[in-house]
Amino acid sequence: MIYQYIVLSLILFFIGLITVIVRRNLIVVLMGIEFMLNAAGIMFVTYSRFYNNYSGEFITLVIMLIAACEMAIGLSVVVAMFRIFGSVKSNDIRELRN
């Protein structure tokens, strides 16, 4: 049983990772990050269920909380970037490159 849950979590994680690497649109990148976080959350819940240890579920709650905060900040940064640079494509923002 546990196997499927882990596969699901891994698939979600890699979708998120590939999204972060491949896509240029920062909003989509943020979504990728969210994917990965939730993959980790599923993993926690899975294990806590199978080991009868509830701390994993608490951690998942914390992760969701953090994810919400991060999303808020991330989106606001992206919006600010859009205002400043006129784009949300990561390649267009070259402040760190010479």
């Binding site: 990148v29 990561s90 490159r97």
Partner: peptide
Amino acid sequence: FQNGYLYKIIC
């Protein structure tokens, strides 16, 4: 390694 492209950094 520090070329500023997000995907490369992550890779």
